Amino acid sequence: MIPAARTAPARTVPVRTVPVRTAPTRPAPAPGGLRTGTGRAPCHHGELLQGVFLDGAGRRCAGLVTLPMPGPAGRARFRPRPGTAPDDLTVVPEGRTKAARAAVLAVAECARRSGRAACGGELRLTGGVPVGLGMGSSTSDVIAAVRAVADGYGLRLPPDAVARLAVRAELASDPLMLDGRPVLFAQREGRVLEVLGPALPPLVVVGCALGGGSPVDTLSLPARPPAEAGADEVRAFERLRALLRRAVATGDVRLLGEVATASARIGQRVLAHPEFDDLTDVARRVGAAGVQIAHSGSVAGLLFDPAAPGLRHRVRSCVRALDAHGIPATRTFTTTEEIPHGPAHRGGGRPAGPGTARRPARLPAL
């Protein structure tokens, strides 16, 4: 009898499970080819120059130059509801009527451009800055809403189209839909009067809040049609425009500060901030290049040349002096930081301006 062959027990080979990495997917398209869209738009820190200017045809029109501020941005998410009426729009948080109006206008524009049906949906707004401070909160909401709707329709609207929709939605718009270059912008018409140069000179801004930071009701401010501006007044603003153009071309922070201070002083005729003299006195004592004040809010800033000697000491002295006058400092920032547009609206890199090779001093966290 031949004994049965002995078989070795089977070896168990451990199997390594390798996780498969997949790219994040966008939400599935809704009927009609629409998706949930997102949009983003920056805010700003008030104006460097604001007044009445002449356009290329010699016509008087209101115009402004804003001070860019890296960081805070308004964000919007548009979730379409195909089959609903275009004006059937839910807005979160409630009360953002300008952004809601912009979304409805954007739906009509995007439906016309894409050939898809217009519909309502939900618009959800987050981020940004508090309203009423003159930092472009409403325009940021409006532009983010327009971009979110366009993204939902698979489109990217050109800046001039966004500007037209923004003006229709809120009557006057800041140039936050543009690429960051300093422009003289006709805020009631949504068009660029002049590109002043590739970029502002680098600035360090010590922000502060006037009037205790209370919001300003822009609609309550007295408004005068540009056509009623006197010839001397227009000549004064055109002179400031020419000086600002030179400051941008030469990288002259001191000249830019003089223009901003002169514009703020003219704005005092309407805004009448009681702290204005204290603000300009602090700027003089700490060696700031000048001051800038939002034309429709309470935010203000003291402007410094980042290449100035003893910058850290100047900034700290500035904050202490503001505090001594009861003017709360808010944030210190530099204008040379990049302002991102978001993945759906990323433009080219911001062009370098005069003097951008100078590295700003590292600032204390304030």
Rank of each mutant, 00 (worst) to 15 (best):
E109D: 13
C110Q: 10
A111P: 08
A111R: 09
A111N: 06
A111S: 15
A111V: 09
A111C: 11
R112V: 11
R112G: 14
R112K: 08
S114H: 05
G115W: 06
G115R: 09
G115I: 10
R116M: 13
R116P: 00
A117W: 05
A117L: 15
A117R: 15
C119Y: 04
G120E: 14
G120S: 12
G120N: 13
G121V: 09
G121N: 04
G121T: 06
E122W: 01
E122F: 01
E122H: 08
R124G: 00
L125D: 10
T126N: 12
T126S: 15
G127S: 05
G128W: 03
G128I: 03
G128E: 02
V129H: 04
V129S: 01
V129R: 12
V129A: 09
P130D: 04
P130T: 11
P130V: 13
V131D: 14
L133C: 08
L133M: 07
L133A: 09
G134S: 10
G134I: 04
G134T: 07
M135A: 14
G136M: 01
G136R: 07
S137V: 04
S137F: 02
S137I: 08
S137K: 05
S138M: 12
S138V: 11
S138D: 13
D141W: 08
D141L: 08
D141M: 04
I143H: 00
I143D: 08
I143N: 06
I143Y: 01
A144I: 07
A144V: 09
A144H: 05
V146F: 08
R147W: 06
R147G: 07
A148Y: 12
D151R: 11
D151I: 09
D151A: 15
G152A: 13
Y153D: 06
Y153G: 04
Y153N: 03
G154C: 04
G154I: 03
L155Q: 14
L155A: 10
R156Q: 11
R156F: 01
L157G: 08
P158G: 06
P158T: 03
P159V: 06
D160Y: 06
D160W: 09
D160M: 04
A161Y: 00
A163C: 10
A163S: 08
R164I: 01
R164P: 00
R164W: 07
L165M: 13
L165Q: 10
L165I: 15
A166Q: 14
A166E: 14
A166D: 13
A169W: 05
E170F: 09
E170H: 07
A172I: 02
A172W: 01
S173E: 01
D174E: 00
P175G: 09
L176V: 02
L176C: 05
L176Q: 01
L176P: 00
M177E: 01
M177P: 02
M177K: 02
M177C: 14
M177Y: 12
L178F: 15
L178A: 05
G180S: 11
G180E: 13
G180Y: 06
R181C: 12
R181Q: 15
R181I: 01
R181M: 05
